[in-house]
Structures are given as C-alpha cells and as structure tokens.
Design a protein around this nucleic acid. Structure first.
Lengths: 110, 110
DNA sequence: CAGTTATATTAGGATAATCGAATATAATTA
DNA sequence: TAATTATATTCGATTATCCTAATATAACTG
C-alpha cells in the first residue's frame, strides 16, 4: 500500500469534504472571485469563508492575488472541476437508484 | 447555492478523506475482495478495516455480498476510480510544481 | 493620521472522526 | 454442540473539524 500517495490524495479529498468548500469551488469555476462576492451567495460569515479558503489554499486547490483592498481567488488546477462533475453524477445516480428502489417497494401494495 | 446537492457531494468526498479508505478502493479496483484479503495489504486491524468499510458502505461506494464465511466487497460505481485517478494526477502535478519551485530557489546560491 | 473596507487569524467550545480493545454475530467444521 | 474463522459493532479516549466572536492586518479614503 502506497501510504504516502494515498495520504496526499486523501488530503485533496478532505478539502472537498465540506459543502461550503464545494460551493466556493463552484463559484470559482465561473472565474475569479473575492470573498466579498462570495459572502452573499454562500450563507456563511466572512470569517468562516476565510477559514474555508485557508483550507482550500492549504490543499493547493485555490490561490489568491491581491488587487487593492480585495483578494481575488482562483482555482489552481482546472481538473478539480472534473472531480466535482464526477461527484455530481455519482450522487445523481445514487439518488435515482434509491428512488427506483423505493418506487418498486411501494408498487407492491397494489 | 444548492445546499442539498453540495452536502451529498461532500459526503462522497468525505468517504475518500482517509488514506486507508483510498487504499481499500484501490484494491477493489482490481476486483472483489474480502476483509481477510485486505488485512495483510493494508496496515490496519480487522476491526479498523471493518469500520472504514462501514464508512464506504454508508456513502454507497461499496457493497458486500456474503459468500460462506466471507463477505466479498466490490465498488458500486466504477466512476469512483476516475475520481481517484484525477486526485492522483492533481497530487502528482502539485508535487512536481513544488519540486520545480524548490529547484529554482536552490539554483540561486550558485 | 483617523476611519473604513476587505480579509485573515486566533481562541474557545461544540461536534465529529479515528482507533484500539472488547464483544457480538454469523457461517463452518469437528 | 463446541470450537473456529470471518466480519461487524460498541465503547471510550484522543484528536480533528467546525463555527462564532473577537481581534489583527492591510490597503484605501478623507
């Protein structure tokens, strides 16, 4: 078992293991954003968003660039969006399967 | 912000947020495995492997099928391996970039 | 310089993840 | 049925994550 590699992969996965951090990355998919632009869309405090950005920075998934008073964040590797897309289709299919299973159980009562 | 969708996506990501769980999935990539086959390859106790399998089951990423005394586990969605592949290349590039950055800093002392 | 805006960091408490140890369950074999 | 093998679950302690509140830093504005 390639412990070191798996540790690093799980570190990246851990960075995605929070809905707010996924929401942040989804915003960055559409281009650079400062925290002040994220604040209204995410339902989280400024401090909390900064903390989640720190986690994403720590995992090397985002980087910021100062522009006057603001700091513009961007994704450092576009492939993270492919990961998000895959997670979305996996989730989507899981929901569909669960719905089908429920429907077939319910149809028995007829 | 689509809170529900992001919660489900982050749940899947959280299941990947541990090196042992990634190692388990990598074993399952090569086919069905029982816990007793995982035990020597992973450096973890039987109980601990069972606990990680429970986490993967809870996220719907693996399923087990009893076969006599053993329970054969398999991945429920092959696309999870695409996620692992992406995490691997992202990690690989991050390492390379860090190495290049270090090398260029070291070359200054000449 | 004083005040303001944008962001980051720290501290503290609550919740969750992790692991080892012990125990439970389930199938098999003697 | 007793012993054995394979796996799961529970408990408790430790560590990590998360959030809010407060404070710090940094750049801009008057």
């Amino acid at each position: 078992m390639d412990t070191r590699a798996y540790r690093l992969q799980s570190k990246t996965a851990k960075a995605l293991a929070h809905p707010t951090r996924i929401a942040i990355l989804e915003m960055l998919r559409r281009g650079e954003r400062c925290v002040c632009e994220m604040e209204p869309e995410l339902e989280a405090s400024q401090a909390n968003i900064s903390q989640h950005l720190a986690a994403l920075r720590d995992a090397n998934l985002v980087a910021g660039r100062r522009e006057g008073m603001r700091i513009q964040y961007r994704a450092t590797d576009e492939r993270i969006f492919q990961v998000l897309d895959l997670l979305a289709v996996i989730r989507h299919d899981q929901l569909n399967q669960a719905r089908r299973a429920l429907a077939s159980l319910e149809s028995v009562r007829a």
